[in-house]
């Protein structure tokens, strides 16, 4: 079995990696909120730039996430097309003008306003996606768990999350073993068998998988209880990294970006959208 890395945390030792988990989660949330508050293309472009610069600083390996990025691109495109099919004049309604590019029929009219609206939406996604992926790439799972607990997520939920990541490779290994042993006894769950057969055969793998996983769960919960898990209302985290100067700076920076966005939104443009058509 080839080892598959689910959680691709790699400590590259960049400035981003050195930030504490709490500040990373906070910065992510602040920037996401910032982006949610605006549809101003200029602001969104600036946010996207910031997001890309941060990814660059963290040496984020975009190449390794090609499949994911492609999936995202397709998703965004389909989303835009569906939007157009359902409400082709939404852009016109928002901006109050209509620069027609092409008229399919009375209902489907392609306008510059609609294209501009869809562009804003895609850029909005783009401003968040890289830092979202970055969060998972640059933060150790346990540290993430401790950070989530730091922002008041109940600690039991956080441990469940960390444990899922700890045992995922083991369960995956079980699955592979079971699957191969089944094949040796004449069960074909490979692409050669028909779909209905494959579904039926996969269900045969699930029985042993569930049973061996239940064994595992019992063992883990015993091991945890025997070491005092769950007795107190709170717990500390070995992987927690206390905030340092750079963390405060990072949070300050993101907060400033957020304030700037709010300023643009409520004091300058005074609208969710920035209208280039007037």
């Amino acid at each position: 079995m080839r080892e598959i890395k689910v959680f691709s945390y790699v400590d590259k030792g960049t400035i981003i990696h050195k930030l504490s988990g709490v500040s990373k989660v906070l910065c992510f949330l602040i920037l996401t909120f910032a982006s949610m508050f605006t549809y101003d293309l200029r602001v969104l472009l600036v946010l996207t730039m910031i997001s890309l610069i941060i990814s660059y600083l963290a040496k984020f390996p975009f190449g390794r996430y090609k499949a994911f990025l492609l999936y995202f691109a397709i998703f965004a495109l389909v989303n835009s097309i569906l939007n157009f099919l359902l409400a082709p004049t939404y852009g016109v309604e928002i901006f109050g003008s209509a620069h027609v590019i092409y008229r399919f029929n009375d209902f489907y009219v392609l306008t510059q306003e609609e294209l501009y609206y869809q562009l804003c939406k895609i850029i909005k996604f783009l401003s968040i996606i890289p830092i979202g992926m970055l969060l998972f790439y640059s933060i150790h799972p346990s540290e993430l768990a401790s950070s989530l607990n730091g922002i008041k997520v109940p600690y039991k939920a956080c441990t469940v999350f960390a444990l899922a990541l700890r045992y995922f490779p083991d369960i995956q290994k079980d699955y592979n073993n079971i699957n191969l042993a089944q094949q040796a006894r004449g069960i074909d769950s490979s692409k050669k068998a028909s779909l209905s057969k494959r579904i039926k055969n996969t269900s045969k793998i699930l029985i042993p998988l569930v049973f061996s996983t239940l064994d595992r769960v019992e063992l883990i919960s015993n091991a945890m209880e025997l070491r005092g898990y769950g007795k107190a209302k709170s717990r500390t985290w070995y992987s927690y990294r206390p905030l340092q100067k750079r963390d405060y700076l990072a949070i300050l920076f993101c907060t400033l970006v957020f304030m700037a966005v709010l300023f643009m939104r409520f004091a300058v443009v005074k609208n969710l959208f920035w209208n280039p058509f007037i």
């Binding site: 769950g230 007795k231 717990r235």
Partner: peptide, 30 residues
């Protein structure tokens, strides 16, 4: 208690964290 299956009872994502598990539950300072 040290259980039989030393792999299954490894609850941390790394050695330090696993050793620290009981201390974490005791709210020991970092």
């Amino acid at each position: 208690t040290v259980l039989q299956d030393s792999d299954g009872q490894f609850v941390g994502l790394n050695v330090g964290e696993d050793i620290a598990f009981a201390l974490e539950n005791d709210n020991v300072k970092l």
